[in-house]
Lab assay of single mutants.
Amino acid sequence: RKESAFKSMLKQAAPPIELDAVWEDIRERFVKEPAFEDITLESERKRIFKDFMHVLEHEC
Rank of each mutant, 00 (worst) to 15 (best):
Leu56Ile: 05
Trp23Arg: 01
Arg45Ile: 00
Lys2Tyr: 01
Glu33Gln: 06
Asp51Tyr: 05
Ala13Val: 06
Asp25Val: 10
Lys7Cys: 09
Arg1Lys: 13
Asp20Gly: 15
Ile17Asn: 01
Asp51Pro: 00
Glu24Lys: 08
Asp25Tyr: 04
Asp20Ala: 11
Arg29Ser: 04
Thr40Gln: 11
Arg45His: 02
Ala21Phe: 04
Met53His: 04
Asp25Gly: 08
Arg1His: 15
Met53Glu: 03
Ala35Ile: 09
Lys2Ser: 08
Asp25Glu: 09
Glu3Tyr: 04
Phe30Tyr: 04
Ala5Ser: 15
Val31Ser: 09
Lys2Glu: 11
Leu10Glu: 00
Arg1Met: 15
Phe30Glu: 01
Asp38Gly: 13
Phe6Ala: 01
Glu28Gly: 12
Lys46Phe: 07
His58Ile: 09
Asp25Trp: 03
Glu44Pro: 02
Leu41Glu: 14
Ala5Tyr: 12
Ser43Val: 08
Arg45Ser: 00
His54Leu: 13
Glu18Pro: 10
Phe30His: 02
Glu18Cys: 15
Glu57Tyr: 11
Glu28Ala: 13
Glu37Arg: 13
Ser4Gln: 15
Leu56Glu: 10
His58Asn: 11
Phe6Asn: 02
Glu33Ala: 05
Arg1Leu: 05
Glu44Lys: 03
Ala13Glu: 01
Met9Arg: 01
Val55Ala: 12
Phe36Arg: 01
Ala35Glu: 12
Phe49Thr: 00
Glu44Arg: 05
Ala5His: 15
Pro16Met: 12
Asp25Ile: 05
Ser43Gln: 07
Ala21Lys: 04
Phe36Gln: 00
Leu41Met: 09
Glu57Leu: 07
Lys32Asn: 06
Asp20Val: 05
Leu19His: 08
Phe6Asp: 00
Val55Ser: 14
Glu59Asp: 12
Pro34Arg: 14
Ile17Arg: 02
Trp23Ser: 01
Lys50Leu: 13
Ala21Gln: 08
Lys32Gln: 12
Lys50Thr: 14
Arg45Trp: 01
Val22Gln: 10
Ala13Phe: 03
Lys32Gly: 14
Ala14Pro: 00
Phe36Leu: 02
His58Gly: 13
Met9Pro: 00
Trp23Glu: 01
Phe49Ser: 01
Ser4Gly: 14
Val22Gly: 09
Phe36Asp: 00
Glu59Gly: 12
Glu28Leu: 11
Pro34His: 06
Val31Leu: 10
Ser43Glu: 10
Ala5Phe: 12
Phe6Tyr: 03
Arg45Ala: 00
Ser8Cys: 15
Gln12Asn: 08
Ile39Phe: 03
Glu3Arg: 03
Glu57Cys: 06
Met53Gly: 03
Val31Cys: 09
Lys50Asp: 12
Ala21Gly: 05
Leu56Asn: 12
Ile39Ser: 00
Phe6Thr: 00
Phe6Met: 04
Glu59Phe: 03
Asp25Asn: 11
Thr40Leu: 11
Ala5Pro: 04
Lys46Ala: 11
His58Phe: 09
Ala13Pro: 00
Thr40Gly: 11
Leu10Arg: 01
His54Tyr: 07
Phe30Ile: 02
Gln12Gly: 07
Ser43Asp: 08
Arg27Cys: 05
Leu41Asn: 13
Pro15Met: 05
Leu19Cys: 10
Pro15Ala: 03
Asp20Thr: 06
Glu3Val: 11
Asp51Met: 05
Glu28Arg: 10
Ala5Asn: 15
Glu37Met: 13
Asp51Val: 07
His58Gln: 14
Glu24Ser: 08
Arg1Gly: 15
Asp38Gln: 08
Lys46Trp: 04
Met53Trp: 02
Glu24Gln: 05
Lys50Arg: 12
Ile26Asn: 06
Arg47Ala: 12
Asp20Arg: 09
Val31Trp: 09
Val22Asp: 10
Glu59Val: 06
Ser8Arg: 13
Asp38Tyr: 06
Arg29Gly: 05
Pro16Glu: 07
Arg47Ser: 12
Ile48Met: 14
Lys46His: 07
Lys2Pro: 03
Asp51Lys: 08
Asp20Glu: 10
Glu28Lys: 15
Met53Pro: 01
Thr40Ala: 15
Ser43Leu: 05
Met9Tyr: 01
Met53Thr: 09
Leu56Pro: 10
Glu3Gln: 05
Val22Lys: 12
Ser43His: 04
Asp38Ala: 15
Ile48Thr: 02
Lys50Gln: 08
Gln12Asp: 07
Ser43Met: 15
Pro15Asp: 05
Phe30Lys: 00
Lys46Pro: 00
Val22Pro: 05
Val31Ala: 12
Ala21Pro: 02
Leu56Lys: 12
Lys7Ala: 08
Ala35His: 04
Pro16Gly: 06
Met9Leu: 06
Leu41Ser: 13
Lys2Met: 08
Pro16Tyr: 03
Ala13Tyr: 03
Pro34Gly: 08
Asp51Gly: 08
Ile48Pro: 00
Ile39Cys: 04
Lys32Asp: 09
Arg47Met: 10
Leu41Gln: 12
Ser4Pro: 05
Ala14Cys: 07
Ile17Gly: 00
Gln12Ala: 10
Pro16Asp: 06
Lys7Met: 09
Leu41Asp: 14
Lys50Tyr: 10
Lys32Phe: 09
Lys11Ile: 07
Lys50Met: 09
Val22Ser: 08
Ile17Gln: 00
Asp38Lys: 11
Glu37Asn: 06
His58Tyr: 14
Lys7Arg: 07
Ile17Ala: 00
Leu10Met: 03
Asp25Ser: 08
His54Glu: 14
Lys46Tyr: 09
Lys46Asp: 04
Glu24Asp: 11
His54Val: 14
Pro34Phe: 06
Arg29Tyr: 06
Lys46Gly: 05
Lys32Thr: 13
Phe49Val: 02
Ile48Asp: 02
Glu33Lys: 06
Leu56Met: 13
Asp51Asn: 14
Ala13Gln: 04
His58Cys: 14
Lys11Trp: 11
Lys2His: 05
Arg1Asn: 04
Val55Glu: 13
Trp23Tyr: 05
Leu41Tyr: 15
Thr40Val: 15
Ala35Gly: 05
Ser4Cys: 15
Trp23Lys: 01
Glu33Arg: 08
Lys2Val: 04
Thr40Asn: 06
Lys32Leu: 08
Phe49Asp: 02
Val22Ile: 08
Ala13Leu: 03
Pro15Trp: 03
Glu57Pro: 08
Glu28Ile: 12
Glu37Ala: 11
Ser43Lys: 12
Phe36Ser: 02
Phe49Ala: 00
Val55Leu: 14
Phe6Trp: 01
Arg47Cys: 04
Cys60Leu: 09
Ile48Lys: 02
Glu33Val: 06
Lys50Asn: 12
Glu28Trp: 13
Ala21Val: 10
Glu59Met: 04
Leu10Gln: 01
Lys46Asn: 08
Asp38Glu: 15
Ser4Trp: 15
Glu28Cys: 11
Phe30Asn: 04
Asp38His: 10
Glu24His: 03
Glu37His: 09
Lys50Glu: 13
Phe6Arg: 00
Ile48Cys: 15
Glu3Cys: 03
Phe30Trp: 04
Asp38Cys: 14
Leu19Tyr: 11
Arg27Glu: 04
Val55Gly: 12
Asp20His: 08
Leu56Gly: 11
Met53Val: 09
His58Ala: 12
Arg47Lys: 08
Ile48Gly: 02
Ala5Met: 15
Asp51Ser: 09
Ser8His: 11
Lys11Glu: 12
Pro34Trp: 03
His58Trp: 09
Ala13Thr: 11
Pro15Glu: 07
Ala35Phe: 02
Phe30Val: 03
Glu44Asp: 09
Ile26Thr: 10
Lys2Phe: 09
Phe30Leu: 06
Ala5Gly: 12
Cys60His: 10
Lys11Leu: 09
Leu56Tyr: 09
Ile39Glu: 02
Glu24Leu: 04
Lys11Phe: 05
Arg29Cys: 04
Pro16Ile: 04
Val31Glu: 14
Glu37Trp: 08
Arg27Tyr: 00
Ala35Cys: 06
Pro15Leu: 04
Arg45Pro: 02
Asp25Leu: 07
Arg29Val: 04
Pro16Asn: 07
Ala5Asp: 15
Ile17Ser: 00
Arg47Pro: 00
Ala5Val: 12
Leu19Phe: 08
Phe36Cys: 05
Trp23Cys: 02
Glu44Ala: 06
Pro15Asn: 03
Ser8Pro: 01
Leu56Val: 11
Leu56Arg: 12
Phe30Pro: 02
Cys60Gln: 06
Glu3Thr: 05
Arg47Gly: 07
Arg29Lys: 07
Ser8Ile: 13
Ile48His: 08
Thr40Pro: 14
Lys2Leu: 05
Met9Gly: 01
Glu24Trp: 03
Asp38Arg: 11
Ile39Tyr: 03
Glu44Met: 05
His54Trp: 10
Ile17Lys: 00
